[in-house]
Design a protein around this nucleic acid. Structure first.
Lengths: 129, 129
DNA sequence: TCGTGATTACGAAAAACTTCGTATATAATC
DNA sequence: GATTATATACGAAGTTTTTCGTAATCACGA
């Protein structure tokens, strides 16, 4: 039973986390480049954010050659679970069904996605009997 | 095909919206009382937020007797859909399946909830063939 | 009418988050 | 070893969000 107080990432932090989750451990320059595709941000802005995230214990940093390499400390799945828990509670009073309802309404989910979701459901319902 | 720029509520605004969605049109005092159950907030803080929300076009206000009555301008379902769309894109790159995966992992959904979700799925898959 | 309690109006401070300029350090190249 | 390119460190300003104190307003009962 886990108990630690976990950090809730801000929007900017989440952007950075997603890059690190996708690319694996990366330098500031790499993250900056990746972010630049979607959004103009100064290099030192990204650097500063990542430094703050280290202070907060969200990222850890390894000195590797001249540039530092950063990576998330916690597990991706757990962080995402926390994000959903928080969002589900803030927007839907904690109702998973309502969240899923609006998720399916919000985006024309592809048949493949629907199939995946059905598989998950089957597993969960199986474990309930 | 709708086109308007919609407002993305801040955390505080969302708290207030949820009270109005649950209770229907309410006065500041009523909202303040309701919020107080979960979280200590000054009365004028809530008032100010609701006034700002009126300025932004999120709420409308009807003068009814000495206290004003407020209510959300947009439809609840649409606002929630927007919230999910935004969250899904920020946290999961827009993948509904991933969102649902973590939603089901994040909370032991009850069999009733799972059943509801399955019904939704059936409807959506039906509409795809 | 006066006072009292409840409400709204307004302004501004406080807090949280984001951005970036400038200084400094380091290493590779010439 | 000087120059240049690339990084990090640090501080501070800018922006958005949240909070609340104080004043003005209004209705009602004494």
């Amino acid at each position: 039973m886990r108990e630690e107080l976990r950090h809730k990432p801000t929007n900017s932090e989440l952007r950075i986390l997603r890059v690190l989750w996708d690319r694996g451990p990366s330098t500031v320059r790499e993250v900056h480049e990746e972010l630049g595709k979607a959004r103009e941000t100064g290099y030192t802005t990204v650097l500063k954010l990542m430094q703050i995230m280290v202070e907060k214990g969200v990222l850890e940093r390894v000195e590797s050659g001249r540039a530092h390499v950063y990576r998330p400390i916690g597990a991706e799945a757990e962080a995402k679970r926390d994000l959903v828990t928080d969002f589900m509670s803030r927007a839907f009073g904690g109702s998973a069904a309502e969240l899923v309802l609006h998720a399916l309404a919000s985006k024309r989910a592809t048949p493949e996605e629907l199939a995946k979701i059905r598989v998950m459901l089957d597993k969960l319902e199986g474990s309930h009997e």
